[in-house]
């Protein structure tokens, strides 16, 4: 009995969807816009995160030692630093390694190489490069180094020189995050309201039909059901269309994006997050269709 009613509701929803094709196409079009916006916000958020992470990755602080520490001292210093929750990565660079890197970096610059030869020997200091998880954490690491047990071995910490850059980066990333979240919420809300109103107007057109259905004895669910089915069908079509548009767009735009943001493979990100994106789109499309239809019909059922 129940399954027969459900079958009729689905059949009726599908039939009405086909017969009201003009309205259905308009609803799908608006839904495609909404889902596209939600998907774009998701992808931009991921791109911003990637940018922030790659910017933060470029920032580090170096601790230079007065003399070449012994192996034992290096291990102790590394162990103490690793105890700090802010520390993500440590890299010890000996005097020799520092010289080799310096020589390699300035290989073509005669003046610098001649100056180095004139100074004689190896004027560079051994150091430990420290990477924190976030730009905001370098201040805490610097404060620790000021009171560390191996402080007498430290010649200098380059935090004070890098501090303005790090602080600026920290403020920039935090601003991008806050603006991104606020903007996403506002845009998503606008998109949802537009889609909701489209469904509401479509159902408003059937206001008299809904009234007649009530008067001939249809239960609320029998009235509401076909509209919800139409909402689901519109949502599914919209998801399919949006997904195809985005797949093609990502495939063709990915190489261009990689030029602007080196290291970012949008295509690989999109297809490796295939399920998450599809679920997000389904939640946006089908969820919107069902909830909007349910609420819009409910208004006409209250008599």
């Amino acid at each position: 009995m129940m399954s027969a009613a459900l079958k009729r509701i689905i059949k009726s929803g599908w039939r009405d969807f086909k017969r009201n094709n003009g309205l259905s196409v308009a609803t799908i079009f608006i839904m495609v816009m909404t889902i596209s916006l939600v998907t774009s916000l998701f992808l931009s958020q991921k791109t911003f995160n990637f940018l922030i992470v790659s910017l933060e990755d470029k920032v580090d602080m170096a601790v230079y030692f007065t003399e070449e520490p012994t192996n034992e001292e290096i291990l102790t210093i590394q162990a103490e630093l690793f105890h700090l929750p802010e520390v993500k990565k440590l890299e010890y660079i000996s005097k020799e390694e520092a010289l080799a890197k310096f020589t390699e970096r300035h290989a073509g610059e005669e003046v610098i190489m001649e100056s180095l030869a004139e100074v004689g020997g190896n004027p560079l200091l051994s150091s430990i490069n420290i990477k924190a998880w976030e730009a905001s954490q370098y201040a805490a690491i610097s404060a620790f180094l000021d009171t560390a047990s191996f402080n007498d071995l430290i010649a200098k910490v380059d935090y004070s020189q890098k501090k303005p850059v790090i602080e600026r980066l920290f403020s920039l990333t935090s601003n991008i995050n806050t603006t991104g979240i606020v903007l996403s919420i506002i845009l998503a809300l606008v998109a949802v309201l537009i889609a909701f109103n489209t469904v509401r107007i479509a159902i408003y057109n059937s206001k008299e039909e809904i009234e007649t259905m009530r008067l001939v004895g249809a239960s609320d669910w029998f009235i509401r059901g076909p509209f919800m089915v139409q909402g689901i069908i519109s949502g599914l079509w919209a998801v399919l269309i949006t997904f195809l548009i985005f797949s093609a767009a990502v495939y063709f735009l990915s190489p261009k994006v990689a030029i602007i943001v080196p290291g970012l493979n949008l295509s690989s990100f999109f297809f490796s997050n295939f399920l998450v994106i599809l679920l997000l789109q389904l939640a946006a499309g089908v969820g919107l269709g069902v909830i909007a239809s349910w609420l819009a019909v409910r208004k006409h059922l209250i008599i």
Partner: peptide, 9 residues
């Protein structure tokens, strides 16, 4: 439609 809402076969 009226028979459908009443659950007729």
């Amino acid at each position: 439609y009226v028979m459908e809402v009443m659950g007729a076969s």
